[in-house]
């Protein structure tokens, strides 16, 4: 009796079929929605598009990081990135111009801050003198390069003078920075 009940139940269950709607148009509905497998050229294009997006995002990140690093000051989180970028620039250009320009900018920025961080300023001034002196050694044998470099240093002098007049409190440090320029001039006199 019990077995018969279960058999009947199974038989009744199997009588249940899909609705008329599904039988009549179910497959047509599915067929419209399903896509044929992606053609090879589309797969390639898809991969290329993904790669391009990846590269684009990477470049955006690198650019943002580099931009933030350029604005960083000594002691900042991204300052090592800035120093690294200067080293890379030196490899490609063969000179210290990028590092020198960065140091001048840092001296100007630090000198304009409301609360002067004398220790950091002094450190940047020393680094400025070092890179300038190193560059002076490099351009010593080329008159054209010497002339060009001298003009750059003159522009630095102008900026330093402006800073000193704006903020006399940093005169001592700026004078130290100017020594790099004097050294060049002194050498010139000796020649």
């Amino acid at each position: 009796m019990k077995e018969e009940f279960l058999e009947n139940l199974r038989s009744e269950y199997r009588k249940t079929g899909a609705t008329l709607h599904l039988r009549q148009s179910g497959w047509e509905d599915i067929a419209k929605k399903i896509e044929a497998p992606t053609p090879f050229y589309k797969q390639i294009f898809g991969s290329f598009a993904k790669l391009s997006i990846g590269v684009f995002v990477f470049l955006i990140l690198i650019t943002t990081l580099y931009g933030a690093a350029l604005a960083s000051m000594p002691g900042g989180l991204l300052y090592p990135v800035k120093i690294f970028s200067e080293k890379v620039a030196k490899v490609f250009t063969g000179n210290n111009q990028v590092a020198i320009d960065h140091r001048v900018d840092e001296i100007v920025t630090l000198s304009r801050e409301s609360e002067i961080n004398a220790r950091e300023l002094k450190k940047v001034v020393i680094e400025y003198r070092m890179v300038v002196e190193e560059e002076q050694e490099k351009v010593r044998n080329s008159e054209e390069q010497k002339q060009e470099f001298q003009e750059r240093l003159e522009s630095h002098r102008v900026r330093f003078d402006e800073i000193t007049s704006e903020n006399p409190g940093v005169e001592k440090e700026i004078e130290e920075a100017k020594k790099a320029l004097e050294f060049r001039e002194g050498e010139k006199d000796e020649d």
Binding site: Y13, A18, W27, A36
Partner: peptide, 24 residues
């Protein structure tokens, strides 16, 4: 392999079974 017609045949085979499974 992506044969839509073959899948259509499979749909026919399994429609009732899947439907009643879900229905109950």
């Amino acid at each position: 392999k992506g044969d839509k017609n073959a899948y259509g045949e499979l749909y026919k085979i399994f429609l009732d079974r899947i439907y009643r499974f879900v229905y109950y």
